[in-house]
């Protein structure tokens, strides 16, 4: 699954980055939201959404106990419903990577760890790299880094680029997801530019948000990033994944994201290998919809475990 760039990353020609028109993006998103997904098509999408989930807990109060419970949930989403997929990854802070790694042994579920002075990224390069190295040494399969938004907004694109490239190197075999924190980048043009920077610097995934800043993921922002991924693929042939995170709490919204993914990037990306939902609340709503499709009735939320 690893796709380490073998050659040194090349700083992209940012003057070639396509502009983004916000009104047009809104209109396109509205079209995705109007697709009618019913019956077997809905069940397929719901199962896919579960398998793409990065079940996340990123709290100051997180403990080994909490993380173990979450890992169990990730393996056994709803045992009353047979043959459900497991989630793609469990996402935790570096200090809890080892716990998660043990709890998930043999499950096929990855451990993702945030790093690089998450969520603000306001620290030295040295601390960020140490944070990354620690998470990797604890056993993280995936590193979710944050970019330095302050540097980006000052126009220090080379700084941001070099930092991502350095973290990528520190990741070793671990997959690198680069969080743009789109809620702090202000314009869709900035988001597109940051996406291009991150991909050229070696990102395996680009990710919208930490979940700590509002707005977090939106369909508009995700579409712009998907289109950047598409252009990068056409230019280089390298597939980069996408992870919207934060604010995706309902099955209906998750399906709309999948419609957007399907009609923008197609088959290659329609898998947990290249698309993830970063979410803490989404799973139970998806499970409830799945059960409803089978039984015809909505169950009480108390039938679904809250971990």
């Amino acid at each position: 699954m690893s796709s380490r760039t073998e050659t040194m990353p090349v700083f992209p020609d940012l003057s070639r980055v396509s502009r983004v028109d916000e009104v047009g993006v809104e209109e396109r998103v509205a079209r995705f939201q109007k697709r009618s997904i019913k019956k077997e098509s809905k069940v397929h999408a719901l199962r896919l959404a579960l398998s793409m989930m990065d079940l996340t807990t990123l709290e100051g109060q997180d403990t080994a106990g909490k993380v173990r419970q979450l890992c169990y949930k990730g393996r056994h989403l709803h045992d009353a419903y047979p043959d459900l997929p497991h989630v793609a990854a469990i996402c935790v802070y570096p200090s809890l990577v080892r716990v998660a790694k043990q709890a998930l042994a043999g499950s096929g579920i990855n451990v993702a760890s945030v790093a690089t002075a998450f969520p603000s990224g306001q620290s030295s390069r040295k601390v960020k790299l140490a944070d990354t190295t620690f998470a990797v040494s604890e056993g993280a399969d995936e590193i979710d880094m944050v970019i330095s938004r302050g540097e980006f907004l000052q126009g220090e694109y080379a700084y941001v680029f070099d930092e991502i490239a350095a973290v990528k190197e520190a990741c070793n075999e671990a997959h690198l997801k680069v969080i743009l924190e789109t809620g702090e980048l202000s314009t869709l043009d900035n988001i597109r530019r940051a996406s291009v920077l991150a991909m050229h610097a070696g990102a395996d995934f680009i990710k919208t948000s930490t979940g700590k800043v509002q707005p977090a993921a939106t369909m508009q922002v995700t579409l712009v990033m998907l289109q950047a991924i598409r252009d990068y693929y056409m230019e280089t042939g390298r597939v980069v994944g996408m992870k919207p995170a934060g604010g995706i709490a309902t099955a209906k919204l998750a399906i709309q994201y999948l419609v957007m993914l399907r009609e923008t990037l197609g088959k290659t990306w329609l898998t947990p290998t290249w698309f993830r939902f970063g979410a803490s609340r989404l799973a139970n709503d998806v499970l409830m919809q799945l059960v409803k499709e089978r039984s015809g009735a909505y169950q009480s939320l108390d039938y679904f475990s809250k971990d």
Binding site: R35, S36, I37, K38, K39, E40, S41, K42, H44, A45, L48, R230, Y233, M234, E235, G237, L258, R262, E263, L265, G266, K267, T268, L270
Partner: peptide, 19 residues
């Protein structure tokens, strides 16, 4: 750009049921 070899494949396993 070497686009001939690359294309986005929209023939997905997941399709939309009639609505």
């Amino acid at each position: 750009r070497k686009t001939a070899a690359r294309a986005i494949d929209f023939q997905t396993d997941w399709t939309y049921a009639p609505a």
